[in-house]
Design a protein around this nucleic acid. Structure first.
Lengths: 173, 173
DNA sequence: TTTTTCATACAGTTTATTCTGTACAAAGTT
DNA sequence: AACTTTGTACAGAATAAACTGTATGAAAAA
C-alpha cells in the first residue's frame, strides 16, 4: 500500500466522520476541522490545519475558536513553539453527547417556561372575558398551549433518560 | 382581554413553539408554519397560512410540501372546497421524536458501516506494508478508526435506549 | 530598539439559501 | 367552449453564511 493510497483512505475517513459530527450541529467546516484534528491525533498549528482542510488561515482560526467555545478542542502549550497548537478532545462520546443533551435540555426548559408563563397570563386575563366567542377562542388557545407544554415535558423526560443512559455508559468504560 | 391582546399572545406562542421545532432540524420558516397550523387546530388554506406567517403563496406552498414530506402535516379533503387544505398532525411527540431518532439511527448506521468498510480495507492492505514508518502510520490510523467506530456504537446504543423509552412513553398515553 | 512572526479584526467577495412575482397547466365554473 | 381559480415551476432578487486577503497589534527574536 502506497503513501498515496493511505492519504486517500485518510481523506475518506475524515469525510465520513465529519458527516456524523454535523449531526451535532457543527457546520460542515467545523466538523471537518475537528475530524482532521482527531484523526491526526496530535497538536496542530493553524497553517497545518489550513493545509489539510484547504482553507485560509483566517477561516481556520475562526473554526478553531468555535470548537474551543464548544469545548471540543483545547489549546496546548509546547516548549519553544511560537505558534498556537490545538488538539481534539479524546473523549468523543462524552464531549459530543453530553454537550448535545444539555443543549436540548436547556433549550426545551427555557421554551417550556415561556409557554407556561403565557399560559398563566392567559388564565388570569381570561377571567375578564365575557364575550362568548372570544371565550371559546381562549379555551381553544389554552388547549393548544397545554398540548405544547406536554410535548416539551415529554422531550425533557426523554432527554433526561438519555442523560442517565449516557452517564452509565461512561462509567462502564 | 381584547381580541388584539389575544392575537398578541397567539403570536408569542407561535414564536416560542417554533423555536423548539427548529431543534428538530426544521428551517425557521417550516417551524413557524407548523406552529401556526398546530395552534390554529384546523385545516388551513395556502393563502390563510401565507397571511399568518407573512410570506408569499409560493413560499408557503414550498414549506407545506416540506412538511408533507416529513409527514408532519396532512392534506385534508372537504366537500365543496376548491382550495387545498392542510392540517398539522396532532401527535407531536411521536411524529417529531420518532422521526428524529430514526434519522439519527439511520445516519450513524450508514456512517459506521462506511468506517468499518474502510477499516477492513486498511487491514487487508496493511499486510503488504513493509516500510516501518508507513507501518506505524497505518497502526495510528487504525487506532483512530477504532475510536470513531466505538463512538458510533455508543451513539447508536444511546438512541436505541431513547427509542424504547419513547415508545413506552407513548403506551402510557 | 528594531525587526520579524504570529493570530485575528475587518471589509469585501463569493457562495448558498430563502423568498417573490410571473407564467402556466390542471381543474372547476359558467 | 370560454373563462376563473388554484397550485406550483421557474427565474431572478434579497438575505444570510462562509471564506479570503489585507491590515494591525501583540509578542518573540535579533
Amino acid at each position: 500500500m502506497s503513501k498515496n493510497q493511505l492519504e486517500n483512505l485518510n481523506y475518506l475517513i475524515v469525510t465520513e466522520f465529519a458527516k456524523t459530527l454535523e449531526l451535532f450541529d457543527l457546520s460542515s467546516s467545523e466538523a471537518r476541522l475537528f475530524a482532521v484534528l482527531y484523526i491526526e491525533n496530535r497538536p496542530m498549528k493553524l497553517d497545518e490545519m489550513g493545509e489539510k482542510v484547504g482553507k485560509s488561515k483566517t477561516s481556520v482560526s475562526n473554526g478553531v475558536r468555535s470548537l474551543l467555545d464548544l469545548n471540543l478542542v483545547e489549546r496546548v502549550w509546547k516548549k519553544g513553539e511560537r505558534k498556537d497548537l490545538y488538539q481534539a478532545d479524546e473523549d468523543l462520546y462524552r464531549k459530543f453527547m453530553s454537550n448535545y443533551i444539555h443543549k436540548w435540555l436547556d433549550a426545551t426548559n427555557r421554551q417550556k417556561d415561556s409557554l407556561e408563563q403565557i399560559e398563566e397570563q392567559l388564565r388570569k386575563e381570561s377571567l375578564q372575558v365575557n364575550n362568548p366567542s372570544l371565550n371559546e377562542y381562549v379555551d381553544d388557545l389554552n388547549d393548544r398551549l397545554i398540548g405544547m407544554i406536554e410535548f416539551h415535558k415529554l422531550i425533557q423526560s426523554t432527554f433526561k433518560d438519555i442523560k442517565h443512559s449516557a452517564t452509565s455508559l461512561n462509567k462502564n468504560n
